[in-house]
Design a protein around this nucleic acid. Structure first.
Length: 887
RNA sequence: GGGUGGUUAGUUCAGCUGGCAGAGCGCCACGUUGACAUCGUGGAGGUCGUUGGUUCGAGUCCAAUACCACCCACCA
């Protein structure tokens, strides 16, 4: 028994309920079925303790649209969800919490700290999952993963060991980016460069045993305690004689050599450069070339250490000031100039990072990058939009080794063990208890953890069970589409491609769909500090998830940033409301025991054929759009089809039949109404899953829920070109009549008589066949056909159409002068058009080179306009004669 | 220093392979006709940043250029 749709569209009444219904019935869970094709998307795992923001909403809406589309097309569609342990960010939060309780992580110890962290993720971890559900995400929760799960650890360890065994992971003393606030090394990708206003200090380093000196320029004078040389360019005439001599380091009076190295730019600064191998990546290289050794002067809080003498304990920025002051006092500081350059900041906490030499673990990237470059060039990997391919290539072609060890506790601990007795380094899949070299049991595991992106870099296959050969992995891998923001191409996309190519032997996904940023209405990035973030959940609460989803995928194109306007959500809520009411209208006009007619039984009239043709035209277009990831275009087509074609025209045209008695005619209208609505619901379902399913469940003759219904395919038996054109003609006529009535301020309630003067029998027939439409849609009370010779006087308004004229008796409302003016304007317009067409057709180049259909079109236009112009002229002549006679 | 994107109606944006410029919102006028005022009908509003080029034909392709935004980069 069908129940009626409630009078008002209220998404709250059904969204949650439907989600539960889908989820509980297992519609989100695909099976491994070799008779069907899989389609797989891995959800980019949000931070486990995060909250849903617009970026997530956009991302997941897109993924859900793709998954629902493919599911309806009959694929075994797997969308695997999960969360990321976000080591650095979660650890910082837990540390902060401990701090507020007056505790520190060191006091607590590693084990207790991890317990706290797990507790934290338990408290805040479920949040984002429930928030995602409100969006309607049809992902398979039975396969949910967490990047720090035990199984994930197995995968991470396996990957680490394999890469180590291939010589692609190594440990070494390198310059890394140290965050003095997070107390850990971070990778290059995690450093944000920002132009910063600083000062350039010009410092004179005196020469040993000589009354001379050399001036260097630096922005970081506090690192001078780590200077191990001064370098000049070997070709620099100014400094040739200094090479090989010894300089005295001011403030500490240490002796350092003056060396020559090509790296030094002669025309920058003073052409002489202080070399601080332990605190600058370039100096490090220079130092290596000249065997300068290392000297670290900053501790892990970026304070000067014991190598800085009396400056020990000073923060780097305080030390900078103090050093400058003292240099000035002692006469070494020659000049200070304002200077602007890019300074690296920690991506997470925005602290200025400090390049510092440190023993860390690295992944050797160059050998891994090569196959990743090839994969793009071969077309195995595609980006949408394609321009991001260049960004991807550029990064890979200039890749540097990836620092993967972090001095954090919350994460995957390195599967590395050290023998405290003989110093052996053991990398192992299993826990090591005994040294395989010296036999000692004095073994300690490395205390560092891995970069979060190391574990998320395995996401496309670790989630499916890798390194085990599971049926899931076999069936669903490689995945099809990755949907993510362009801002994490380097962090994540590249790492997944690289690890997958290396260990799986193929790309982890075929298409990478990159989304832009969702900005506020003023185009600013949404951020916590600005407080301009718009909470998706509040939007859902007020307007429903469907309206939000629709807003996020329309009016923008892939990879481009979009502005978020509440007005657009409102407009899309109105669209949902329109659909709701159209459906309600249909249900109100279906009998309780309605059963639709078969193709053979139906007695289709023009408007039925028109709407069916239109429907069958957009289906392939929408498929095409979706296959090309043009979601916005697809959505727009459905929007227009529903609102304009179905609601504004078809429903209005069909009303008289619904209210009438004629059984077959009425039943045909009902059948077509229902059929087309069902197709609309299917097409719209991926975009607006809730409202479409809700309506669907209220419709008669549905066998299964919409979520697993079959995706529409074009029905060639229901395409009627001629009728489509006829109805389009009728629409044009109705619009023209409405236009005139509106111009003349004829109220809707005042019905008018319409007198048609058709040019030929064909048009006459079309008009007669569709006469009722003029009565309901053009406020006509009556309709007459007259022949050409009848002359209508000044009591009539005339409308000139293609192949037909229409006259309306509107005696009191007509101002003859204005009417002549109006027609004269029309005359001018048509003459202009004809001139334009004539010019085109007179153009030798156009006629000989343009495609035939374009030329034919122009010729048709010429015929049409000429005929219309004649009619307008005739009418003008009649009116002008009457005016003359009156004089 | 290198690279990318944007510049189209008052506003926010679409516009796929070149063939008489589109939408939402806003605005103006009319209208509560038995799905919907979260609505209907009609309307106003654009030299598609600028300059060249290719072409029968350019918002669309090419080359410059301006402005805005972003990304990358080890000149201290």
């Amino acid at each position: 028994m069908r129940e009626n749709l409630p009078k008002n569209y209220n998404p709250k009444e059904f969204e949650e309920k439907l989600y539960e219904y889908w989820n509980e019935n297992g519609y989100f869970t695909p099976k491994v079925d070799n008779s069907k094709k899989p389609y797989t998307i891995m959800m980019p795992p949000p931070n486990v303790t995060g909250t849903l923001h617009m970026g997530h909403a956009l991302n997941n809406t897109i993924q859900d649209i793709l998954i629902r589309y493919k599911r309806m097309q009959g694929f075994e569609a797997l969308w695997l969800p999960g969360t990321d342990h976000a080591s650095i960010s979660t650890e910082a939060k837990v540390v902060e919490k401990l701090k507020s309780e007056g505790k520190s992580k060191e006091e607590l110890g590693r084990e207790k700290f991890l317990e706290e962290s797990w507790e934290w993720t338990k408290v805040y971890g479920g949040r984002i999952k429930n928030q995602l559900k409100k969006l309607g995400v049809s992902c398979d929760w039975s396969r949910e993963r967490f990047t720090l799960d035990e199984h994930m650890n197995k995968a991470v360890t396996e990957m680490f060991v394999r890469l180590y065994e291939k010589g692609l992971i190594y440990r070494g003393d390198r310059i890394i980016n140290w965050c003095p606030n997070c107390h850990t090394a971070i990778s290059d990708a995690e450093v944000e460069h920002e132009d910063t206003h600083r000062y350039m200090y010009y410092i004179r380093y005196p020469l040993k045993d000589e009354n001379d000196g050399i001036i260097i320029a630096t922005t970081r004078p506090e690192t001078m305690f780590g200077d191990l040389a001064i370098a000049v360019n070997p070709n620099d005439e100014r400094y040739k004689e200094y090479i090989g001599k010894t300089a005295i380091l001011p403030l500490s009076n240490r002796e350092i050599p003056i060396i020559a190295d090509e790296y030094v730019e002669m025309d920058f600064g003073t052409g002489a450069l202080k070399i601080t191998p332990s605190h600058d990546p370039n100096d490090f290289e220079v130092g290596e070339r000249h065997n300068l050794g290392h000297l670290i002067v900053l501790d892990e809080d970026a304070r000067i250490n014991e190598n800085g003498g009396i400056y020990k304990g000073l923060d780097r920025f305080d030390a900078r000031k103090k050093v400058a002051e003292d240099l000035k006092e002692q006469g070494y500081l020659i000049d200070i100039k304002e200077y602007e350059n890019a300074v690296g900041h920690c991506e997470r906490c925005k602290t200025v990072i400090e390049p510092i030499i440190s023993k860390q673990w690295f992944v050797k990237m160059e050998p891994l990058a090569k196959p990743a470059i090839d994969a793009y060039n071969n077309g195995e990997l595609k980006f949408i939009p394609d321009r991001f391919g260049k960004v991807y290539l550029h990064w890979l072609e200039n890749i540097r080794d990836w620092c993967i060890s972090r001095q954090l506790w919350w994460g995957h601990r390195l599967p590395v063990y050290y023998c405290e007795s003989c110093g052996e380094v053991i990398v192992s899949r299993d826990e090591v208890e005994k040294c395989n070299v010296c036999g000692s049991y004095n073994i300690k595991q490395d205390t560092d953890t891995l970069d979060t992106w190391f574990s998320s870099g395995l996401w496309p296959f670790s989630t499916l069970g890798w390194p085990d050969k599971t049926p899931d992995l076999e069936y669903f891998f490689p995945t099809d589409t990755l949907v993510t923001g362009y801002d994490i191409i380097f962090f994540w996309v590249i790492r997944m491609v690289v690890t997958s190519l290396s260990e799986m032997g193929e790309v982890p996904f075929k298409d990478v769909f990159l989304t832009g940023l969702v900005r506020d209405s003023q185009g600013r990035k949404m951020s916590k500090s600005l407080g301009n973030g718009i909470d998706p959940l509040e939007i859902i609460d007020e307007y429903g998830a469907d309206a939000l989803r629709f807003t996020l995928v329309t009016g923008n194109s892939p990879g481009n940033d979009m502005r978020f306007y509440i007005e657009r959500v409102e407009a899309n809520r109105n669209f949902a409301n329109k659909l709701w009411n159209a459906s309600r209208f249909l249900l109100m006009n279906l009998e309780e025991n309605f059963s639709s007619l078969s193709d053979e039984e139906m007695e289709l009239v023009d408007e039925d054929k028109w709407i069916l043709t239109k429907l069958n035209e957009i289906i392939p277009q929408i498929n095409d759009n979706l296959d090309k990831y043009e979601l916005g275009l697809a959505a727009e087509k459905i929007y227009n089809f529903l609102w304009e074609d179905y609601c504004d025209w078809y429903i209005e045209m069909v009303k008289t039949r619904l209210y009438g008695e004629d059984g077959l005619n009425k039943k045909t209208a009902q059948t077509v109404l229902l059929r087309v609505l069902k197709e609309i619901l299917k097409l719209l379902h991926p975009f607006m899953p809730f409202i479409t399913e809700e309506i669907w469940q209220h419709l008669p003759e549905t066998e299964k829920p919409l979520i697993i219904e079959n995706w529409p395919i074009k029905n060639d038996n229901m395409v009627f070109e001629r009728e489509k054109e006829e109805i389009d003609y009728i629409k044009t006529a109705i619009k023209a009549i409405r236009n005139i009535r509106s111009e003349m301020n004829v109220p809707m309630s005042k019905k008018s008589k319409l007198i048609f003067v058709p040019d030929n029998e064909e048009i006459k027939e079309t008009i007669l066949k569709n006469s009722r439409k003029f009565i309901t849609l053009a406020s006509a009370e009556d309709l007459e056909i007259e022949n050409k010779n009848i002359k209508f006087g000044t009591d009539y308004v005339s409308i000139v159409l293609e192949k037909c004229e229409v006259y309306m008796p509107l005696k009191d409302l007509i101002d003859i002068t204005k009417e002549i003016e109006r027609l004269d304007k029309e005359r001018l317009r048509l003459e202009d058009e004809i001139n334009r067409v004539d010019k085109k057709l007179a153009n030798e180049g156009f006629v000989s080179k343009a495609p035939k259909n374009i030329i034919d079109e122009e010729k048709q236009k010429k015929i049409k306009y000429t005929q219309m112009l004649e009619s307008v002229k005739d009418r003008l002549k009649i009116l002008q004669n009457i005016v003359e006679e009156d004089k």
